[in-house]
């Protein structure tokens, strides 16, 4: 492979550059790119008599668009993802704004309080919601204890609501981080300049702070949306048949239903949707960051 000369980093020899770049390129090529390519290839193959036949065709994609179930589930998933995104923003933005503009010495402590749940096990947090929302669960126990209800209410668990609630809990810190970072990066003298020119707190927020935090807002929203789009564990944990998401279909096609090619085709769709979202938001972020 011919190397282009790098003017700014000429102090490192050609051999150095070879040695540092070859292993990761090879590894990523073999264990990441190749598997993704394999997924792509599978989506154009078939299952016949219980085995995968390497015949190139578009039938899997045709099935996707002919069978309304898939599209229905995909749209439901996107609605739920939008719900999670919106709720996470609703929780995350005021928190980030408060921490960035209204806390002094406690800032660092509060920041750590947000990143702890961020990195703490998905499973532990999902499980916690399961114990709370279940029909024998703690929320029901609590409501009966307060005599709000007399018999267990079952709609908390096994509903799209439960899935959205659990994922909002999981992704709020994800949404918070880029938001907080972008708010922290707003030079404080811009806020002062706005006040100086006659804008009150409201106008300053709407005209200065909000527009300048858009890149962070977008990054956070992308996180929440994309990660929810591919989630299959939350519906299994706290959702019911009514909250099956697109990744659950993939998972069952790879499991009991044994139709890998169709599962791969759906995965490719999720992948393409994800990547186009990432590209789109990156463009927008670049346009909205005025550095």
């Amino acid at each position: 492979m011919p190397w282009r000369s790098a003017n700014d980093i000429e102090m490192y020899s050609r051999a150095y550059k070879w040695i540092v770049s070859t292993p990761p390129i090879l590894w990523v090529g073999i264990f990441l790119l190749l598997p993704y390519a394999l997924m792509f290839a599978h989506s154009f193959w078939l299952v016949r008599d219980g085995t995968i036949v390497h015949e190139w065709n578009l039938e899997n994609y045709a099935k996707l668009f002919q069978n309304p179930v898939y599209l229905e589930v995909l749209f439901r998933t996107m609605r739920m993802a939008a719900g999670v995104t919106l709720l996470s923003l609703l929780l995350g933005y005021p928190l980030a704004y408060y921490m960035s503009f209204h806390t002094g010495h406690s800032k660092d402590l509060l920041y750590q309080l947000v990143i702890v749940p961020l990195w703490v096990s998905y499973l532990v947090r999902g499980y916690a919601w399961k114990t709370i929302l279940g029909s024998e669960g703690i929320l029901n126990g609590f409501l009966e204890y307060l005599h709000v209800t007399s018999a267990p209410v079952s709609f908390f668990l096994y509903s799209p609501f439960a899935v959205v609630l659990m994922l909002t809990h999981i992704y709020t810190p994800f949404v918070f981080l880029p938001l907080y970072a972008s708010l922290e990066h707003i030079p404080r003298n811009l806020v002062e300049a706005s006040h100086d020119l006659g804008a009150g707190s409201r106008a300053t927020f709407l005209r200065v702070i909000l527009p300048l935090s858009l890149p962070g807002l977008l990054a956070g929203a992308t996180f929440a949306f994309v990660l929810t789009l591919g989630d299959f564990l939350a519906p299994l944990l706290v959702g019911g048949p009514s909250s099956i998401m697109i990744a659950n279909i993939v998972q069952s096609l790879f499991g009991t239903a044994y139709d890998w090619p169709l599962g791969a085709a759906i995965s490719v769709c999720i992948l393409l949707l994800t990547i186009s979202l990432l590209v789109l938001t990156e463009r927008l972020e670049n346009r909205w960051s005025f550095r």
Binding site: P35, L38, M39, F223, V226, G230, V250, T274
Partner: peptide, 12 residues
């Protein structure tokens, strides 16, 4: 950023 299911299935 990619959902785990995609990476997991690809490697499978």
């Amino acid at each position: 950023i990619l959902p785990g299911i995609i990476t997991g299935l690809s490697l499978l």
